[in-house]
């Protein structure tokens, strides 16, 4: 009697908990869907007055000027250029640090250094922005005197420093999870430490390492503060990192902070840029996901 009562209560609890878990999952999906909906909804009027062709192929982005141009290319170019510079710094350095921490460092050293590294990503990005403007750029100017005060290079490098912990920490986790017998198998064949790290541990941890790269890329594409402060606010269709430029995110901040009235074309550009950003990150995530699935390793 008593046990069956107890069992019934447990069953009821189980149902409740399942309901709570399901609704929280549903909530996050609904919120994402709502954001995407708003982006689309607010962008539609924009594309009624600006043709797709102009949007994709015009070489200027000057929505707020009297001679308005609506070519997204300069912003995309700025976004990719800063991201590329950040990744050129962060991916090799982060990966090397991960290899060192996972395969060479003593247990004690790793346990001290990892939290310190992760602290780097806890620094507010606005501080990184001023770091880029007031420290990195002047430093670069001593080598490159022609460098302008606002430039892509300084902002990109600073962003790279900022995302190193994402790469190193997540890659290290993935490498550390590679089972010891696999490494021993390699050592038993007469491989050196380095050969084991490069030829066995990295391939075995490949899926986790790719995830860390994808996260770093998404983070770099979405980063706002550093580029808004240090890269200058000029849409600029150039591949020269010594010039100033503007990214999609920086443009969104700039316009959001202004006082554009609702419903104007200028106001709608915010959402169009948001939508573009959303598509870019979506593409990276899909590519990353399929890469990860393809190389998923079961130990």
């Amino acid at each position: 009697m008593k046990t069956s009562y107890y069992r019934r209560i447990e069953r009821f609890k189980d149902t409740c908990i399942r309901g709570i878990l399901f609704s929280s999952a549903l909530c996050s999906i609904l919120i994402t869907a709502a954001i995407v909906f708003v982006l689309f909804y607010e962008s539609i009027p924009f594309f009624k007055s600006v043709s797709f062709k102009q949007f994709l192929f015009d070489k200027q982005w000057t929505p707020l000027f009297s001679d308005a141009h609506y070519g997204i290319l300069p912003l995309i170019c700025g976004t990719f250029l800063t991201t590329l510079i950040a990744l050129i710094l962060a991916i090799p350095l982060g990966t090397i640090m991960a290899i060192y921490l996972s395969e060479y460092a003593s247990h004690k050293f790793r346990e001290t250094l990892k939290p310190l590294l992760e602290l780097l990503s806890a620094v507010p990005t606005v501080i990184y922005g001023y770091f880029a403007l007031l420290f990195v750029t002047p430093l670069l100017q001593t080598i490159l005197p022609s460098l302008s005060g606002f430039n892509v290079l300084g902002a990109g490098l600073t962003m790279g420093i900022m995302i190193i912990p994402y790469v190193s920490s997540l890659s290290e986790d993935a490498m550390h999870a590679v089972p010891m017998p696999l490494r021993e198998g390699s050592y038993a064949m007469g491989a050196t430490h380095f050969q084991t790290a490069i030829r066995v541990v990295i391939p075995a941890a490949f899926s986790g390492i790719t995830s860390s790269y994808i996260l770093a890329i998404s983070r770099a594409i979405g980063e706002t503060m550093v580029v808004a402060i240090a890269a200058g606010m000029q849409p600029n269709l150039t591949l020269n990192p010594l010039e100033p430029a503007q990214t999609l995110t920086a443009y969104i901040v700039q316009v959001s902070l202004g006082d554009l009235p609702h419903g104007t074309l200028g106001y709608q550009t915010i959402f169009v840029c948001g939508l573009t950003l959303f598509f870019i990150t979506l593409c990276f995530n899909i590519v990353g996901h399929s890469l990860r699935k393809k190389f998923r390793e079961v130990y």
Binding site: P179, P181, L182, E184, G185, A188, G190, P203, A204, F206
Partner: peptide, 20 residues
């Protein structure tokens, strides 16, 4: 030990093929 392990092979309890 690396030279040594080139002369003395080892097979483990659980098969541990490399992810290759």
């Amino acid at each position: 030990p690396i030279e040594l392990r080139m002369r003395i092979g080892m097979v483990f309890q659980k098969p541990n093929p490399f992810p290759k």
